[in-house]
Amino acid sequence: MQLAAYQRLPPVGEYNLYRRRMLPLPGMAKRVAYFVTCIADTVFPEIGEAAFEVLARAGVTPEFPLGQTCCGQPAFNAGFTDEARQVAEHFVEVFAGYEAIVTPSGSCASMVKHYYPALFRGHPRQADALHIAARTYELTEYLVDVLGVRDLGVALPRPTRAAIHDACHGYRGLGIARQPRLLLSHVRNLTLVEMVGHDQCCGFGGLFAIKMSAISGAMLRDKLAAIQDADCDLVITGDASCMMHINGGLSRAGSPKRVVHIAQVLAGALK
């Protein structure tokens, strides 16, 4: 399907209320923490590894605070603010004092950036929480906007056409769209194609997929149909949770197509 010009260009920033200018902070390179996210730690450790690898390739070997768990988003999105705050307190405990916190998830980054300030209003650790919120970056955002990386010198094993699924919280929450496209445009053997509804939610939404299973399933079907129609062998996204959701649908539907995390591509980890 041909997309009209106004549909093809992701209206980044144009429609993004959350957009904030992000400038490298003085002394940024000193201590960088890696927040792997609970899902890339336990469910998809290969993504956690790939993202770590990409940072190393870009010349940053981050610290991995061993006490880390989760940002608290699952409970927060379900309305369990107190429970979310308890986990967020732990996050602040672990990540306070770093100059940058980098994570391979737009969703977790946006949780920290957008909701920690309110979650910690009047809290004894408010200052730390604000500090952390201002210094948390999604992986590609950190690579492109802070480190100025363009070409990571990687290639795919064979010529591949790939479409991008812009995961909601990174795309609309953080305005991330240009950065992954820029990085992927330098990957050899990779041709990017745009997909109809590239910015449309896959229906994951955390507990939404369980609580509102039927609606979520219908949204997933729409996404699978778009992937089916797209002229691509591969779909690339920036959030492991969306990847898990869409792949679960593709595998259930018996489709040969798969979604991979952008870190896997940028680390040259695809076989």
Binding site: G217, M244, S251
Partner: peptide
């Protein structure tokens, strides 16, 4: 609710 519409992955091992 999850498996009504999609498969669920087996966790990778070892963890990151």
């Amino acid at each position: 609710g999850w498996t009504a519409h999609r498969d669920f992955p087996a966790f990778g091992t070892p963890s990151f």
